[in-house]
Amino acid sequence: MIWASWRRQRAQLITLLGMVVIGAGVITLLRSNMIDAINSSQLAHCVTQAIDECSAPAEVQKAFRTEWATPFQTAQILIIGLPALIGVFIGAPLFARELEQGTHVLAFTQSVSRTRWMVSKLVVALVPALIVLIVLQYLVWWWLTAAGALGPRLNGSFNPVNFGIDHVSPVGYALFAFALGTFVGVVSRRTLVAMTVGLGAFVVVRFALSGLVNDLVPAQRREVPAGSDVDLRQGGGLELEFGWLNASGQPIPHDKVSALIQACKSTPSGTPNTQEGFLACLPQSGLAKKYTSFIPESQAWQVHLVDAAIFGGLAVLLLVGTAWALRRQS
């Protein structure tokens, strides 16, 4: 059965192989061109350093960023878009085309169980697609890492685009898009319907769930006294909450906070307050501490795991639905 599924999907597998070869060639070439450009503009030390520590002239940095913005974005869009493409062109037609052309009857009337037929088709379609995705994702990561702070990495791991192309998240999205395509295909029995409805549903769910995952990972909390000049946002990461606490440690509502701060900006006599006076005024009005809860950059992998688990779980449900619909006798 594996042989038959392989033979059925041979053209598609060759296309995938071509994509990887071309993709790998283009990315390797772009990466080496980019490193040459960095070295010739003497920007090499800006790759690893923070943006304000980079001593190269601002216009040289700007020129580099402008020149490379489009290639970087294209690579990111490729990895963001690949799961959707896998769903539309590999998942959706997988069963829908057989059901549409009636060739499923051919498979159903041999001495092979429907489940085995389904599993062999799923494996032969999905595994190569995932390998292609992972290889291209790795190559893009390799390239963007070489650009470091001069490229999109500057925005941190929690930037929505950076997050979407990192770690296991793309695999989770691809599994979901693929399973969604097969499920809609089996239910609708129409390739075109499966492709369009699958794509639409994937895009909606992908963006609807994109913020949800942040609340599912334990956040860290940092508190500083009102007058402290310690930067709460140091070290990047994803800030979930920010606010003020009163002396007993209770959060103060945001509208009340802004009223109190406004009040502290002027002295009781009506003249603008000094910086010292302002800072002294804050604890007196009850604004004892600033706090933030955030997910540090170093914990990003946990968020990715939860993200992939959600989409992977949905994919499993959809595949169970696909199996149920295929095994059902009409």
């Binding site: 009636g102 009857v105 051919l106 009337t109 041999q110 001495s111 092979v112 489940t115 059902r328």
Partner: peptide, 17 residues
């Protein structure tokens, strides 16, 4: 629905191949 009886062969009207 699991599969055809091993002793039975069936050729559907559209002759799917």
């Amino acid at each position: 629905g699991k599969g055809l009886h091993p002793a039975v062969s069936y050729l559907a009207q559209q002759k799917p191949l």
